[in-house]
C-alpha cells in the first residue's frame, strides 16, 4: 500500500518536473520566434497561440476580371468543386468564389474573391448550438465537423454567405481537408498548411502567377508584410457596419 503510494509520488514528481520543463520551453519559445519575421513552422506539438492573428489582404486593383486562379487552387487543395455530382449549382459547395461588382452610382466595376472573412467576433460562432463553429486562438474560424449537427443556423447568420452545406455523400476526400455529407464547411485559411508554416493555397497560386493580389500574414506582427501593407495604404472590411473586425480585408473597393 505505502510502497505503491511512494511509487505514485515518484511518478507525480517526475511528471511535474517534466511538465515544468515543457511549460518553460513554451514560455521561451514565443520570444525566440519573435526575432524571425518570416513565416516559420510552429512545432507540431505546440498549440496555436493568440499571440498571432492570421489575415489576408486582397488588393482588388490587382485582380483581373477573368482570373480564377485562387478559386482553382483552393478546389485542388481542399478537394471541393467537382466532388458533388448530384447537387445542383445552388447546392454545390463554395469555399471561395469570384464576384464582379459595380458601383451603383459611378459604374466602376471590380472583380474580387469572396470567402470566409475570419471575423474576430464571428456571428456563425455566436449562433452555433453545439460549439462546432469556433474561432481558433490564432483567429482562423473553423467548423469542428465532429460535433456539427447540420442545423445550418451558421449559414443563416453569416453576413458573407461564406459557408456551404454538403448535400450528398462524398468520396476520396483529402486527408488534410476532411469534409462530408450533412455538415457545414467553409474556407479554413488552409489551416493544415499554415500549421506547417506555409501560406494558404489561394495566396500561393496568386503570387505564383505574379498577380500578387493576396497577402497572407500575422496581423499582430507589426513587421509582417500584411501589417506593413495595411498601414501603408487604405483598405476596408466588408460590412464594416457590423463591427466584426474581419481577418480578411480588401483594397480598391
Amino acid at each position: 500500500m505505502s510502497e505503491s503510494s511512494k511509487l505514485a509520488d515518484a511518478a507525480r514528481r517526475n511528471f511535474l518536473a517534466r511538465a515544468g520543463v515543457a511549460a518553460g520551453a513554451a514560455a521561451v519559445a514565443p520570444g525566440v520566434f519573435l526575432s524571425t519575421s518570416t513565416a516559420h513552422a510552429r512545432p507540431a506539438d505546440e498549440p496555436v497561440s493568440s499571440e498571432k492573428r492570421w489575415g489576408i489582404l486582397v488588393d482588388t486593383t490587382k485582380c483581373a476580371s477573368d482570373c480564377n486562379d485562387c478559386v482553382t487552387a483552393c478546389e485542388n487543395e481542399n478537394g471541393w468543386g467537382s466532388s458533388e455530382p448530384n447537387s445542383d449549382a445552388a447546392q454545390k459547395a463554395h469555399w471561395i468564389r469570384s464576384v464582379t461588382i459595380k458601383n451603383k452610382a459611378t459604374g466602376f466595376a471590380k472583380t474580387l474573391p469572396m470567402m470566409c472573412q475570419h471575423c474576430e467576433t464571428p456571428p456563425c460562432v455566436d449562433v452555433c448550438p453545439t460549439g462546432a463553429s469556433f474561432r481558433r486562438a490564432d483567429g482562423i474560424v473553423l467548423v469542428d465537423k465532429h460535433i456539427c449537427i447540420g442545423c445550418r443556423y451558421c449559414m443563416m447568420a453569416c453576413p458573407y454567405k461564406a459557408r456551404s452545406f454538403v448535400h450528398e455523400d462524398l468520396h476520396d476526400q483529402k486527408p488534410w481537408a476532411p469534409r462530408g455529407k450533412g455538415t457545414v464547411e467553409s474556407c479554413t485559411m488552409c489551416d493544415h498548411r499554415v500549421d506547417k508554416g506555409q501560406i494558404p493555397a489561394c495566396v500561393e497560386a496568386c503570387s505564383a502567377d505574379n498577380h500578387n493580389a493576396l497577402i497572407f500574414g500575422d496581423l499582430y506582427d507589426e513587421n509582417s508584410e500584411i501589417s506593413q501593407a495595411l498601414k501603408a495604404k487604405d483598405s476596408v472590411e466588408l460590412r464594416a457596419d457590423l463591427g466584426l473586425n474581419t481577418g480578411v480585408r480588401y483594397r480598391g473597393i
Binding site: 507540431a44 506539438d45 498549440p47 481558433r136 486562438a137 469542428d144 500549421d195
Partner: peptide, 13 residues
Amino acid sequence: QRDETVHRGIRTR
C-alpha cells in the same frame, strides 16, 4: 487527437 488537432492546431502524427 481529434480535439487537439481541430481546436488547438496540434499536428503530431
